[in-house]
Structure formats: C-alpha cells, structure tokens
Design a protein around this nucleic acid. Sequence first.
DNA 1: CACGAAGAGCCGAGGGCCAT
DNA 2: ATGGCCCTCGGCTCTTCGTG
Length: 302
Amino acid sequence: MTIVQLEYLVAVDTYRSFNKAATHCFVTQPTLSLQLQKLEDVLGVKLFERNPVVPTKIGTEIIEKARLLLDDYYRIREVAQQEQRALAGELHIGVITTLAPYLIPGLMSRFRNKHPGVKLVVWEETTAQIIHKVKQGVIDCGIVSTPLNESQLLEHPLFTEKLVAYVDTTSPLAQKKTLKPEDIDPAEIWVLNEGHCLRDEVLKMCQKKREQPEEPTYAFHTGSLETLRRLVDENGGATILPELALTQLSKEQQRKIRPFKAPEPTRSIGIITPKTFVKRRMIESLKQEIVEVYETAIQAKL
DNA sequence: CACGAAGAGCCGAGGGCCAT
DNA sequence: ATGGCCCTCGGCTCTTCGTG
C-alpha cells in the first residue's frame, strides 16, 4: 500500500469517476485504474463498484481512514516545508472583542514589518465562536481569555492583565481610592451582553461574597468596552475594564479609574490552537509579538 | 564506480460494457 | 448506433539492486 494509491482512492471517491480522478492526480486513467486495482489486491477487498462508481461498504470505511492518514501526511510535509522556508502564507486569527481594539492595530503593523510574507486575517468574535472556528479549522488560532479546559485544544499563555473599576464621579464608589470586589453591586454596573467571557468573569468576581447571585439592572446589549465606558461617562454608574482598555484615556477619564486592593482580580489571555496545529513557527512569532505589544501598551500607560 | 537485469510506474491504443 | 467510462495490453522510461 502506498501514499499514491491512497491519494488515487480518495480522488476517485471525491470525483466518483476514474477519468476525472486521474485528471486531478495528473496521471492517465489506466495508471489510476491499475493502482487502485493493486490496492484492492493488497487489501483483498473491493473498494468501488463500477458503473456507476460507488464505494462499497468496506470501501467507505477504508476511504475514511485514508483521508485521515493523508491529512497527517500533508501535515508532516507542511511541517518540514515550514522549517525550510521563511515565514509566508496566511494566518487566520480569532480575537475576542474585548481585546481586539487594543491589541490588533499595534500587532498588525509590528507583524507586517517583521514578517512581510505573512498575511494576518483577523476575525473579531466571541469566545464561543472562536472555539467553534478553531475546532472546525476555519481559523488557525484564537486569542481568548483562558483557561478554557477544552480537550481538543491547546492553550499557550500570553499575559495576565489586571481588571480595574471605571467609576463615574457621581457614584458612591468614587469616594474610595481602591476597591474590593465585594464593594461592587453586580446589579449596579454596566456589563457586556451574554456570550462575552469578561461579563461572566466580572459577575463571578463581584458575586463572590454575596449569597444570592444578582443580575445586572442596566440593560444595554453591547460587546464593546468603549460603549460601556461612554455609558459610564454619560449616565453615571460603574463598569469593570481590563488594563489594556485604559490606554489613550484623557486626564479626566483617568481620574475615574479605581484599582482593586491586592489580590487584584485579573484575567489571563492566551492563544488557543487545535492539538494538531501546523503553523508552529508563525504562531510562535505571533506569541512573541503579542507579548511585546502588550508590554509596550502597559508601559506607555504608566 | 560502472554496468546490466529486474521491477515499478507510466502512457497510448484498443476493446468491452452500459445507458441513451 | 453512439458516446462515455473503465479495463487490458504492449512498450517505454526510470529507479533500484546485484555483480565485477
């Protein structure tokens, strides 16, 4: 049994025609027929019915295994090719909406300068959508809040950022210089809509010391931290923001920041990939650039 | 290292089968 | 009868392996 025979097998299944499969494999039809015949001889089973070309029951089972095996074979080749070449190609990344506006602009320009051969394609999504797309192979990796504990995925840690309160001057919370999570009433803060991991983290954090879990009173369905911040500016109240969202604030806005007392609440950001991910060098470079963008942004804020 | 035999893989030509 | 599809056959090229 050879890889070529398995490629012919899968091609015949795909095109359901020896002729079209042969054209696709860049050989003549007799060559493909002969190889398939040999494969059938070696395996001792008939893989296809002819006229019309339909896989047999055992053929269907074998084709399924052949597809998996060829997938691994192509991955091995890609790994070897990547080692030989400069970084090139496309890298599809999913980024959670609470991170993308503060990370991606800087990351795009840095990455393009260092790796001009790589085209970054970024998808701004919720965590659930990113997990789904990574598992489906639609995107190569996702930048999300970790841990997720998904058995099919690998998590590569990037950085841990602090969470702070953003409090309007009219709020009683503004009287304190530092806060404890239990100072904040979850029913009285602006939060993201459902599906965003930061919403869950914030509600969990504020409800730790409360007996009855509370749902936020304010109803505004947004996935944007900028909208939350402006809601506080215009309507009063408070919200919880990650550190990266504090860059580029005006002096007046900076006065609304209230850090938490130690141990400060944080969120961990990491890259998720399928366990069998291929573009290792690209993702390693991506990790390095993200950490540098984060550190530069945090230092600029200080 | 050079050479020849054997085997593998390919192609074009031609034939058989089947549906229209 | 015709056309499409697949199989078989004969011959060519290339690679591998054994031998001197």
